[in-house]
Design a protein around this nucleic acid. Structure first.
Lengths: 182, 182
DNA sequence: AACTGACATTCCAAAACTGACATGTCGAAA
DNA sequence: TTTCGACATGTCAGTTTTGGAATGTCAGTT
């Protein structure tokens, strides 16, 4: 009788950290900055979460403190066990596909507002989507993409953002026309 | 000096329940079914969460138990205070725009897998998107849409799902071509 | 020499969420 | 009449997530 491994949900932060450490060792502070920039729109994480998870990761041997720097800085390096765990997560576990969208949830209830207010909400959505799209486009132009792994998959992820925000903007503008005037 | 109202994050479940009760009174069991069907892809919630929140909502006077049915069934009705709170949330608070996507997070780290595995992941993503799109399209055809609020905004939300899954499928197929062979 | 801002970590309270477990009722079919 | 599935709610321990407080170091400027 095989013992099925219990499904641990929400292990994503853990694996995000392992994934970032694949490229090169980094401190909690370094990782925090990565989370607040490139991963901000994919998997936001706070400082307390990151430092806490790093400690757990070190306890379970998936990373090690490979160096100590100036201000109590601890540099973490991925171990073989950590890389194996990351591969296992990517190749052998199913992603959580459902995401919650507060933006969309609100749409369901727009009927309790006046049509003016509802259109205002949808317009503001379109505006935010346009702005985000522009930011991503600027980022796309600023980065010089070569063909290493980081570049290939970074570009793929960015393209997702571009397509997503474009879709959102078009949808919000269409939706606005569906709300009857006054 | 104006005292800024503290930002209360994650009040969404609360407002989702209020929103559903706008249409007609319902029991926890009824709401649970709604969450596992029409809201499943927008704001998933578990039974314990729903019953717990309903009790809190009743305690704070945003809903009342308007009827008791057969099996201890309690029917909740929205109060004026509840409707006011819902309108406040919709019209005067900013939605949390960032969502986390485990699917996209994994894309960032696909470089640690073989190109075959990476392409497999993207193919599976495209397949899921296609399947979900078909489900939503079937749902769209099955419902008869009149022009009340529920229909207008329900259709808008469904259209979002349709566009989103279409975009995801196209993106995943494009992404697959970007991963170099072997 | 004092100041400032970026660097860097630890700890904590509270809220939200998950995944059970526990309990029981009612209607219909076998 | 027993059984079964749908109805219906309550509770709880454990984990995740949030948001912030507390603490301190180092480098460069004033």
């Amino acid at each position: 009788m095989s013992r099925v491994e219990g499904k641990l949900p929400g292990m994503s932060l853990r694996h995000a950290l392992l994934g970032l450490l694949v490229e090169h060792p980094a401190s909690g502070y370094d990782l925090l900055k990565t989370f607040s920039t490139s991963l901000a729109n994919v998997w936001p994480a706070t400082q307390s979460q990151i430092y806490g998870e790093l400690t757990k990761l070190a306890d379970s041997g998936l990373v090690v403190v490979s160096d100590q720097g100036p201000r109590g800085r601890k540099e973490y390096t991925l171990t073989d066990a950590g890389l194996a765990e990351l591969r296992h997560w990517l190749a052998e576990t199913e992603p959580q596909r459902s995401t919650r969208s507060e933006v969309l949830l609100r749409v369901f209830f727009l009927g309790v507002l006046t049509p003016e207010q509802a259109r205002g909400y949808l317009e503001s959505l379109a505006g935010h989507a346009t702005a985000t799209h522009a930011e991503l486009a600027a980022l796309h132009d600023a980065v010089d993409w070569d063909d290493d792994n980081l570049s290939v998959y970074g570009r793929i992820a960015l393209e997702y953002g571009l397509r997503f925000t474009a879709m959102q903007q078009e949808w919000a503008e269409w939706a606005r026309t569906q709300v009857r005037t006054s």
